[in-house]
Write a protein that binds this DNA or RNA. Structure first.
Length: 726
RNA sequence: GGGCGAUUAGCUCAGUUGGUAGAGCAGCGCUUUUACACAGCGAAGGUCAGAGGUUCGAAUCCUCUAUCGCCCACCA
């Protein structure tokens, strides 16, 4: 017996060594598994494309949970003999990464990206992204992830750029991508548009002013936008204003002098709010914009992209809106137009990345039309046969509704449908520098969309970049080599499982379904497994400001990655938040040591002899072996049904409280007893039970199980490719 | 405002198709017995948020109420 078993288990010594052993074996690569005969070439393919972590810094425990679940699925599939590929990668995360680097640079050097220029700024971001990437890869390795590093992809590398441009052109040619004047969420601080999903609403206390507006009274929290308001909107059923007809005009005295206003009747007005009358600012409000669109009204810009007032504001032109508000109210007072001022609490839209106050603007942007009909030439999507006319929205809906993709836990499909049904056209252009530049070139009135720049001089590329979710949406197939017809793509797509946090169901999962459904005519994955948020011991979200974040590397150092993995998995049901504390991890470190000592005992008991030759068994030993067979079957079924939280616990419980506490104890007198047959039966049984336990536990605690496996007598194949059910 | 989920032992959570409640941690008592004190053995601890209903039988299915959490939308 190896001397190392005489002292307690040391994960910090074992884990890096075992990971190196796996890397050297090449067995993370399915092609190597086929070459060495570990996997049959004809075996069923099984693929997970890793959700690419953002290269914005370091991984947190949420990523650790993701890595653990996926590694369990992957190791389980590989041990079942499937042709198993786990493809790792990272995401450039355009806005998030640029904002992070801009912040760092400003903190250190007090300069903005505009001071540095596009080229230098991009150089700095790429440098940061590379360092962050290396950190992330190191963290993923520490967790024991058995992913194929030879296939690693990046959402902004050459191959993925080609995929993005190919998809853009295809959608453009199909009329699904268009450029239009539309109201967008403008972040004056970040100087970019952002998507609806990147907005965070913050509660704010402000003053609600009621102004006299001709014969009406109107309420507003934003006096500084009111300069151009020349439409007054009333609900058609509002009895108080029956005498005013749609289209009536009337003169009135307004902020900078007399204007003429027009009455508009629209059912979107809430009669119960304030006076039931409002004026609209279509250029700077989503709701107002929609009213203006419905009635074909004029739209006028009041505020520029830096948050300053335009000449329409007269004497206030050039002032920042934050400074202008009080001055405008003062002027309104002097003209006796202020009727009422009251304290008012409402939510203001802010940008998730920069914290800037969102100012809606009408701008020329690129959009993906989600309701526009087109013909899908080749499709295996249930309910959308090849050659039928459909919409992107319909694809997103049917893939989930008809079960091509199953979401776990299933109650999330309600949330998903709710989102799909309220979906508007997707604004995909961003005014930032880091990311995929829009593959469109202009020359005078000519527009060229393509994978490469057009021939000839005088073409200028669109300065904007694409929403990062555009490239993420292609991930399942771009990572496998699309648009090239690669062997990997044919073999591994659609992928088996997409495992991620539920907070990106809309951002990402819906868009992957859109892209794969549209581009390839298939659902990108059979199953979506959504894990919950990992919280600290007190139930708080882990964050930098609270300082309660746990680095997976620290956990691995202190308790072992195996223990960290078990702590994240056991009792953690899909879609539900989980708490992680050092106490819980410590418990599984103890378990690792328990298993270590079981191995020590068994190795000692078998006298260093290979016990794989069957022996005549006592009745109780036969029962013990049968019991384990039953547990193995049970656990296999649990994993197949994505119940890792219970599978892990069952194996834990078996090893500790059956194998160690009962079987081991009962074997002691038999091992030192007089009956050689009984001793042999006990030895064989102990050996078999240990062996099977290691197999069962391997997907959960890969390091220690492989380490012990390697110490068994006459061991040839690594545990990582040993069949799961024997 | 709309939607989703949760409420089970002191704490954190399981409980798969309905069959008189389970685990870890903490705590209590005993034990340093030659695999392990990162341990063993033992005991204790819950009217399963509340009310009503379906059923031979409900933590589990249905209705309502309360509390908490999350997501979406956002009112001038």
């Amino acid at each position: 017996m190896d001397q190392k078993f005489l002292s307690p288990y040391k994960p910090e010594e074992t884990e890096p060594r075992i990971y190196e052993f796996w890397l050297k074996s090449g067995l993370f690569n399915p092609d190597v598994c086929v070459e060495t005969g570990a996997t049959k070439a004809t075996a069923e393919p099984y693929c997970i494309v890793m959700p690419p972590p953002n290269v914005t810094g370091v991984l947190h425990m949420g990523h650790a949970l993701m890595i653990t679940i996926e590694d369990i699925l992957i190791r389980f599939a590989r041990m079942q003999g499937k042709r198993t590929l786990w493809l790792p990668g990272t995401d450039h995360a355009a806005i998030a990464t640029q904002a992070r680097v801009e912040k760092d640079i400003y903190k250190k050097e007090k300069v903005s990206r505009h001071d540095l220029g596009r080229e230098e700024m991009l150089r700095r971001i790429e440098q940061f992204a590379k360092e962050s990437h290396d950190t992330i890869v190191a963290q993923i390795r520490v967790m024991g992830a058995s992913c194929d590093w030879s296939r690693e992809a990046f959402t902004l590398d050459e191959s993925r750029t080609k995929a993005v441009r190919t998809m853009f052109k295809k959608m453009y040619d199909d009329g699904l991508i268009y450029r239009g004047q539309r109201i967008v969420n403008w972040d004056p601080k970040g100087q970019t548009t952002i998507s609806d999903d990147e907005i965070i609403y913050k509660e704010e206390q402000t003053t609600l002013y009621t102004f006299k507006y001709g014969p009406f009274e109107i309420a507003t929290a934003r006096p500084e936008t009111k300069f151009g308001d020349k439409y007054v909107v009333i609900h058609p059923d509002d009895a108080r204003y029956k005498k005013y007809k749609d289209g009536d005009t009337f003169p009135l005295e307004w902020i900078n002098g007399p204007i003429t206003a027009t009455v508009i009747k629209d059912t979107s007005i809430d009669m119960a709010f304030g006076t039931g009358v409002m004026t609209i600012t279509p250029w700077h409000s989503m709701v107002d914009f929609e009213i203006a669109e419905r009635h074909n009204l004029d739209k006028e810009q009041i505020i520029d992209i830096y948050g300053k007032l335009l000449p329409v504001a007269g004497e206030f032109a050039g002032k920042k809106i934050s400074d202008a508000r009080a001055l405008i109210v003062e002027k309104m007072r002097s003209k006796s137009l202020v009727v009422k001022e009251e304290t008012y609490t409402h939510n203001v839209a802010t940008a998730e990345r920069t914290g800037g106050l969102i100012e809606p603007q009408i701008m020329k942007q690129w959009f993906v039309a989600v309701n526009k009909e087109f013909t899908l030439p080749l499709s295996t999507i249930t309910g959308i046969p090849s050659g039928t006319t459909t919409t992107l929205k319909e694809i997103m809906r049917k893939v989930v509704a008809n079960g091509d993709t199953k979401i776990i836990p299933d109650h999330f499909d309600k949330t998903y449908f709710h989102w799909i049904d309220n979906l508007r056209d997707w604004c995909i252009s961003r005014q930032i520098w880091y990311g995929h530049r829009i593959p469109v070139w202009y020359k005078d009135k000519e527009v060229h969309a393509g994978v490469t720049a057009p021939e000839g001089a005088g073409w200028e590329q669109d300065p904007d970049t694409l929403d990062t979710w555009f490239s993420s949406g292609l991930w399942t197939f771009s990572a496998l080599g699309w648009p090239e017809h690669t062997k990997d793509l044919a073999l591994y797509h659609p992928t088996a499982v997409l495992e991620t946090g539920h907070e990106i169901l809309f951002f990402w999962i819906a868009r992957m379904i859109l892209m794969s459904g549209y581009g390839l005519g298939v659902a990108p994955f059979h199953t979506v497994y959504l894990h919950g948020t990992v919280r600290d011991g007190e139930g708080r979200k882990m964050s930098k400001s609270l300082g309660n974040g746990i680095d997976p590397i620290d956990i691995a150092k202190k308790f072992g990655a195996d223990a960290g993995r078990m702590a994240l998995i056991v009792g953690n049901t899909p879609g539900t938040d989980t708490r992680i504390s050092e106490d819980k991890v410590k418990a599984y470190k103890h378990f690792a040591n328990k298993l270590w000592n079981v191995a020590r005992f068994v190795l000692f008991a078998i006298d260093g002899v290979d016990q794989s030759e069957p022996a005549p068994l006592s009745e109780s030993d036969r029962a013990a072996l049968n019991e384990l067979t039953a547990i193995a079957k049970d656990v296999t079924e649990d994993i197949e049904r994505y119940r890792f939280y219970i599978a892990g616990e069952k194996i834990y419980h078996y090893i500790w409280h059956t194998l160690a506490d009962k079987i081991l104890e009962e074997s002691k007198p038999r091992l030192s007893g007089e009956d050689p047959n009984d001793k042999r039966s006990a030895q064989y049984t102990l050996y078999r039970l240990l062996e099977s336990s290691l197999v069962l536990l391997h997907p959960f605690m890969p390091f220690i199980t492989e380490e012990i496996w390697q110490s068994l007598p006459n061991r040839k194949a690594p545990l990582i490719i040993t069949p799961y059910v024997r």
